[in-house]
């Protein structure tokens, strides 16, 4: 179904931004007022002003920035490894039809295994090191990329494939000139999905296992009862998440402006 919104009641861009800002402001005011009015205890939910003050305090410490750096490092390394592995495996499986048929059931079985199931294993193997975080991040992000690449490879136009064969392209040339360009938009979608999953798993590993990073700092703030600090750090993880989502979406649009109209989004 190609669809346009109800054309009559459209909100214009300037109005949209203003409404969006007012929505955010409303949230901030609400969080300020709820504890102040005593509707929720300020030990459960400190008012906005105190969370912001705690955020300012944190931002002034070196430890905070080290934690942010650790989280982003784990995220970036994990994502890079997952993307490289996902693309390599995906193209290999995709290029060889027999392989595709043989591996399909295994991929379907391994993909839904929750990555957190590996937490105990990660702890045993790496303790509370970067390795633990990477194991979880790579595992979770790898499937996102792989599945999208496989969708992409399956989308290759049979006519293009046969054209390439009729000109006696080598296997490498077929991958380079037919398979890869078709799969590229899907690779981007996979990277976008993997980027946000990787952040979730990085913070999770730090939080649960205690590997260095924002998650570990949140756990410390929680156990020491520094509630405003804990909220401030959670806000930071959310902001990093928003930044990653926006950047990934923008990058996708930028690189694939030529391709958007040709393909439909595959629901992951």
């Amino acid at each position: 179904m190609t669809a346009a919104g109800a054309g009559v009641a459209r909100v214009r861009p300037a109005g949209r931004a203003l409404l969006g800002l007012s929505g955010l402001a409303g949230l901030l005011v609400l969080v300020e007022l709820l504890p102040r009015a005593g509707i929720v205890s300020d030990r459960s939910l400190p008012p906005t002003s105190r969370i912001l003050a705690a955020l300012a305090d944190e931002a002034a410490t070196a430890a905070f920035w080290v934690a942010v750096g650790d989280t982003l490092t784990a995220w970036a390394i994990g994502l890079a490894v997952a993307v490289a592995a996902g693309v390599a495996v995906g193209v290999l499986i995709g290029a060889v039809p027999v392989l595709r048929a043989v591996t399909a059931s295994t991929v379907e079985f391994l993909r839904p295994i929750p990555s957190v199931a590996l937490i105990p294993l990660a702890v045993l193997l790496y303790g509370s090191d970067l390795g633990s975080t990477l194991l979880l991040v790579v595992y979770a992000a790898f499937w996102q990329v792989l599945v999208q690449v496989l969708y992409g490879v399956a989308d290759v136009d049979p006519v293009a494939e046969e054209t390439a064969r009729s000109f006696r392209f080598t296997a490498a040339a077929r991958i380079r000139y037919v398979l890869w360009p078709t799969a590229l938009p899907y690779v981007f979608t996979g990277v976008r999905l993997a980027a946000s999953v990787a952040l979730v798993l990085a913070v999770t590993a730090e939080l649960v296992i205690g590997a260095p990073g924002l998650g570990a700092v949140i756990a410390v703030a929680q156990t020491s009862g520094a509630i405003p600090t804990m909220y401030a750090l959670i806000v930071v993880t959310g902001l990093i998440g928003v930044a990653i989502n926006l950047a990934a979406r923008r990058a996708e649009r930028h690189f694939l402006a030529w391709h958007q109209s040709v393909r439909g989004e595959v629901a992951a």
């Binding site: 929505g23 409303g26 979730v200 998650g215 949140i218 959670i234």
Partner: peptide, 22 residues
């Protein structure tokens, strides 16, 4: 929708497990 979108984008981006301590 326009008013709620940025707030929703933020909540979606928060890694869910950090909500456990909260």
């Amino acid at each position: 929708r326009a008013a709620a979108e940025p707030v929703l984008e933020f909540f979606r981006a928060v890694p869910p497990p950090v909500l456990v301590p909260v």
